[in-house]
């Protein structure tokens, strides 16, 4: 579903993403794990066709992210780090707008909206203005926006950041349930999140992929925590330790 080959992105002299390669199969939930500033958001922005790669290539749902970006856009649901909400619209109006531009057929738009409202637990705020929502609700509306057109691939950038513990649990359950019929790529800097939600992990550090493994293969001999600390470079141990602690 997602195939990334030697993806690079530089901003001038600064190399944000260096030679990143990994794959995500259909029905997998892939955790894209790394310390802050490791290049997670940049990679995700390239896969969602928001940024062009400097070099390398990637296919999402079988289409090239540069040459066939229109086809890719039709097939992905994307939740950026900050949910892209229009504050002056109500949740329902907003979802109708997103459904329109994502090409949800008019006839099924109404039923799709009520379905995602229920699925993301936002039925009770559907008539509220987006600008009046709390962080947790904004994140959930953002998630609803990403799945309204039933995309093959769902890309989530730090979907649980800034949420309270109860909301985190709800969102994680929601993501797990999405994994049944979609391919999900989610970035996070919280280590335990990966073992709780994902079935595959890709660890990225300083713009490079340092490890790619199925979680089932991993836990046999070592814990994810050990693997993570070993795989990120030594200078980043402090950062990495912070990731471990944050989840605990």
């Amino acid at each position: 579903m997602i195939e990334v080959r030697n993806l690079c992105k530089s901003y001038g002299d600064y190399k944000a993403v260096i030679d990143v390669s990994f794959t995500a199969a259909k029905g997998q939930i892939v955790g894209f794990l790394g310390p802050n500033g490791a290049g997670k958001t940049t990679t995700i922005r390239m896969l969602s066709t928001f940024l062009p790669p400097t070099s390398g290539s990637a296919t999402v749902a079988g289409f090239d992210i540069v040459a066939q970006s229109d086809e890719v856009r039709r097939r992905i649901g994307y939740l950026p780090e900050n949910p892209p909400l229009y504050g002056e619209m109500t949740v329902e109006e907003y979802l109708r707008f997103v459904g329109d531009i994502k090409g949800v057929p008019r006839a099924s738009l109404r039923s799709r909206i009520s379905e995602v409202l229920e699925r993301c637990f936002i039925v009770d705020v559907r008539r509220k203005l987006c600008q009046h929502l709390s962080r947790g609700y904004r994140q959930r509306v953002g998630l609803a926006q990403a799945i309204i057109h039933e995309p093959e691939v769902i890309i989530l950038d730090e979907p649980t950041s800034g949420l309270d513990p109860r909301q985190i649990i709800e969102i994680r359950q929601l993501i797990k349930s999405l994994g049944r019929d979609h391919t999900v790529l989610l970035s996070t800097h919280i280590l335990p999140e990966v073992s709780m939600v994902c079935n595959k992990v890709v660890i990225i550090s300083r713009g490079r992929v340092v490890m790619e493994s199925l979680l089932s293969e991993l836990s046999r001999d070592k814990s994810l925590e050990q693997v993570f600390l070993e795989s990120v470079s030594r200078e980043e141990v402090v950062d990495a330790a912070a990731c471990v602690n944050q989840g605990a």
Partner: peptide, 14 residues
């Protein structure tokens, strides 16, 4: 500024 441009540009809209 508010990031909704990311939504527009990653949607199937030219």
């Amino acid at each position: 500024r508010r990031g909704t441009f990311e939504l527009l540009l990653t949607s199937p809209v030219s």
